Amino acid sequence: MNDKKHGIGLFHAIKGIGSAFLSERNFRIHSIAAVFAIGAGFLLRINRLEWMILVVVIGLVLQAELLNTAAEKLIDYIKPEFHPVAGLVKDVAAGAVLIAALAAFAIGLLLFVPKLYDIFF
């Protein structure tokens, strides 16, 4: 395999993530929420299984945001004027992010609330 080509792919992937972070408010919000969740994991001393669950959920939310951004950018490029089907595609992609974010929130509650309860009560 050509190591140079793999490096280029990694560069473009990082560039895409950076672009989404700079241009997409919701990606920034979810990234900041991920940092807080990771911080809470350290403070509350979650176990290895809980870390695995947290990392997977964070990855899924950020991945959903990136795919949503990609879909929106592609649709805006292909069909800059409003079209009901283009709007529906954007809505469905946004719905996927919402489902991932709600699942992550529920998992966050399941992970952190019992630990907080033990500390305060």
Rank of each mutant, 00 (worst) to 15 (best):
G9P: 01
V97I: 05
D118H: 08
A96D: 10
V97E: 01
H12A: 11
G41V: 08
I8Q: 10
I53K: 12
V92R: 04
A13K: 09
W51Q: 12
G18C: 13
A71C: 04
I58C: 04
E65A: 03
F21E: 00
V57I: 06
V92P: 00
H12Y: 10
L98P: 04
V89I: 12
P80K: 02
F121A: 14
D76F: 06
H83C: 03
Q63N: 14
L98A: 09
L74E: 10
I107D: 06
D76H: 04
H30A: 12
I78K: 07
I38S: 06
G18V: 06
R48K: 14
G39R: 14
I38H: 07
F105T: 07
I32M: 11
A94Y: 02
A86T: 04
S23M: 10
I32R: 04
A103R: 08
Y77M: 03
L116Q: 15
L10H: 09
E65W: 01
E65C: 10
F21N: 02
K15G: 08
E81I: 00
A96K: 13
N26W: 08
D91S: 09
D91P: 00
P114F: 15
K115G: 05
G7M: 10
A34S: 13
I32V: 12
E81R: 05
R48T: 09
L74P: 01
S19K: 12
N47H: 14
L102A: 10
P84Y: 03
G18T: 11
K4D: 15
L44I: 09
F27R: 02
I29S: 09
F121P: 05
A106I: 06
G7T: 09
F120D: 10
H6I: 14
F11E: 15
L102P: 00
Y117T: 12
E81T: 08
K115V: 15
K115C: 09
F112I: 06
V92K: 03
L74A: 13
K73R: 13
V113K: 09
M52Q: 09
I78G: 00
A40Q: 11
N47S: 14
G7P: 03
L54C: 14
I53G: 04
F112E: 06
A71V: 07
M1I: 05
K79G: 00
N2L: 07
L111G: 02
I53Q: 07
K4C: 05
I53W: 10
L62T: 01
A64K: 07
A13N: 12
N2Q: 09
I29D: 13
N26Y: 12
F21C: 04
L54Y: 08
A13F: 07
S31F: 13
P80E: 02
L66H: 04
Q63Y: 14
K15C: 04
A64G: 06
T69E: 05
A100Q: 05
A34M: 11
V56R: 13
M1T: 12
L67R: 10
K115E: 14
I46K: 07
L74I: 07
A71L: 04
F112L: 09
L88V: 00
L60C: 09
D118T: 05
I58R: 03
R45K: 09
N47T: 09
I29N: 11
P114Y: 14
I58K: 03
L43M: 08
V55W: 13
L102K: 12
G9W: 06
P80L: 02
A40Y: 04
A101H: 14
A20K: 01
Q63T: 13
